[in-house]
């Protein structure tokens, strides 16, 4: 089932938390929501899961309108809310039983599904404890278990790996990748590596608006524009080298990164490559080129570029 979000808006008081956002998520796609705190990620997720109703616009899931068929559509969604709220006084198994019943899983399938979730989420060792007695990581697993127990076609995960230890994070990311092959997954996070590790597509939201939409590569191309090289040239006077580099026809900007070690940052002119010119320059002057590293724009930079203003 695909998700089609059309022009949804939500205001809290005077502030527009979500401002006419539209996007589309295909089946078999993992979409990562990125954005600074308070950007509107959680509010958007709350609207997709029908906890909040959009003031304007609509959400279509599998072509059906969320405003009309909410009760039917909610059966196909698994949701892990922010902060993972759970009934602390309930034992895990009772809670999973309750979740399964309320999601309308047929009675005879429930034990099998619970067993499967306990296995997938690694709850076996703790399964007879009350949720309130669990550590944060285990609670997160319970949250994931209840989101996936009905084998939903759509998974909405608000910060799925928060509170997990590094091993668990790797496991959960792997699980999300696997699920993402046949399901539609939207996850939000502020851990950039997580997006790179799990998502097919990235949506960056800032102040309630979408500021970027695409794969990690298309985004970095979009932001980068110009080639950037880190070079180290030895056996010459740094100032002389600096001047010579600056005079190359393909170079737009040179900067010292470390004057003592003769390290420079060279930015090429738009749509030009300066690596050959730099090599030839060194050859003709008898300098030794010991380093030349193309700098890729990292997701961090894209994120900062798009959300800081």
């Amino acid at each position: 089932m695909d998700i089609n979000v059309e022009n949804i808006t939500k205001t809290y008081g005077r502030q527009k938390a979500v401002d006419r956002i539209s996007f589309h998520v295909k089946t078999g796609e993992v979409l990562g929501f990125l954005g600074p705190n308070g950007a509107g990620k959680t509010t958007t997720m709350k609207m997709i899961t029908n906890f909040l109703l959009p003031e304007e616009g609509n959400i279509y899931i599998g072509g059906k309108s969320m405003l009309e068929d909410a009760d039917e559509l909610k059966k196909h969604i698994g949701y892990l809310p922010e902060n993972n709220p759970l009934y602390m006084e309930m034992p895990i198994m009772d809670y999973l039983q309750f979740s399964a019943e309320i999601l309308g899983i047929p009675k005879d399938k429930i034990p099998e599904r619970i067993h499967e979730m306990v296995r997938v989420c690694g709850l076996n060792a703790e399964k007879h404890k009350k949720i309130g007695e669990l550590s944060k990581g285990y609670r997160q697993r319970v949250g994931l278990a209840q989101a996936m127990i009905h084998d939903p076609e759509i998974l909405i995960l608000d910060e799925p790996t928060s509170g997990l230890d590094p091993n668990q994070i790797v496991e959960i990311r792997k699980l999300i990748r696997e699920l993402g092959k046949e399901k539609t997954v939207i996850l939000s996070t502020h851990i950039l590596q997580e997006v790179e590790a799990t998502c097919d597509r990235i949506l960056i939201i800032n102040k309630g608006k979408i500021v970027a939409d695409g794969t990690a590569e298309t985004l970095s191309r979009q932001v980068q524009g110009q080639e950037l090289l880190h070079v180290k040239i030895e056996d010459g006077d740094p100032n002389e080298i600096f001047k010579a580099l600056q005079e190359l026809p393909t170079v737009s900007l040179v900067d010292f990164t470390d004057r003592q070690k003769n390290k420079f940052e060279v930015q090429s002119k738009p749509e030009m490559n300066s690596n050959r010119d730099i090599f030839n320059l060194c050859k003709s002057r008898g300098w030794v080129l010991t380093e030349m590293i193309p700098v890729e724009t990292k997701l961090e930079d894209i994120f900062r570029e798009l959300t800081m203003n």
């Binding site: 709350k46 009760d71 949701y79 902060n83 009934y87 309320i102």
Partner: peptide
């Protein structure tokens, strides 16, 4: 506790 959100996003009116 916020569990209201979990409950109302299940097929519950």
């Amino acid at each position: 506790s916020g569990t209201i959100e979990l409950l109302l996003t299940k097929p519950v009116t």
